[in-house]
């Protein structure tokens, strides 16, 4: 069963690789390695945060950390991945801008990996492209594919932007939050999903763009 998660991960890496090939301008050296390491550290941070939130101590239950299906905090994973990447490129925000389209492509691939996991479906729908789980008559939105398409379009849009510091990365973060926010009502969830994290991502993304503009204005 856990092998399906591995296939989804490979799909994410494959999409990130394609993104790097498509949008290679100003990238740091070994960009795919940097994306994979940042994603892995983000996953670890998200898992640890989720465990603490569930009242399970990672110190007294260290082996539980590897059971990622037990839950991963989206917010902590995002912050962990961003910090890990920035640390790897010596805190140069321009490198964040360079990697942003490929990172969105990688995220799109992770969502498209739902096809391996049998985990694409969301709320019930009668739309012509909705489909049902095996053995069920209830057709549903392929919500994770909607997210994958939205994130790919976001990657393409970000690749068309200029190179003002933090513009590409800020817009990328805001669009990633927007895509997740727009698809969340269609995603099966027990608690309604981390809406506040997506709103925060949009707000931080917009603030990053404004901050970049301010820095540019001050430097000229």
């Amino acid at each position: 069963m856990e092998l399906t998660l591995l296939w989804a991960t490979f799909t994410g890496v494959g999409f990130a690789w394609a993104g790097i090939r498509l949008w290679s301008e100003r990238l740091p050296d070994r960009p795919l390695d940097r994306i994979i390491v940042a994603a892995a550290i983000g996953l670890l941070a998200g898992r640890l945060w989720a465990m603490i939130g569930q009242g399970v101590s990672p110190l007294s239950n260290p082996a539980d950390i590897i059971i990622v299906r037990g839950g991963v905090s989206t917010g902590a994973a995002t912050v962990g991945a961003l910090v890990a990447y920035l640390w790897g490129v010596k805190w140069r925000p321009a490198q964040l801008d360079a990697i942003a389209p490929a990172a969105l492509a990688g995220l799109a691939g992770w969502h498209a990996g739902c096809l391996w996991r049998g985990a694409c479906l969301g709320t019930a729908s009668d739309l012509p492209w909705a489909w049902a789980q095996a053995g069920s008559d209830i057709t549903r939105h392929p919500v994770e594919l909607y997210a994958a398409i939205g994130l790919l379009m976001a990657g393409w849009a970000v690749s068309k932007l200029g190179w003002e510091t933090l513009t590409r990365s800020g817009v990328a973060l805001a669009l990633a939050g927007l895509v997740r926010l727009a698809t969340e009502p269609m995603r099966p969830s027990l608690g309604g999903g981390p809406i506040e994290i997506y709103v925060a991502a949009i707000a931080v993304g917009v603030l990053a763009v404004l901050l970049g503009r301010r820095l540019l204005a001050n430097s000229t």
Binding site: R69, G71, T123, G135, P188
Partner: peptide, 23 residues
């Protein structure tokens, strides 16, 4: 018996199948 999930059940799988059996 509507569905059998072998292995750790994650939130998405649990929520989806709860929705199935409720509807």
């Amino acid at each position: 018996l509507v569905r059998t999930h072998n292995g750790v059940v994650d939130e998405r799988t649990l929520a989806l199948n709860i929705d199935e059996i409720l509807n």
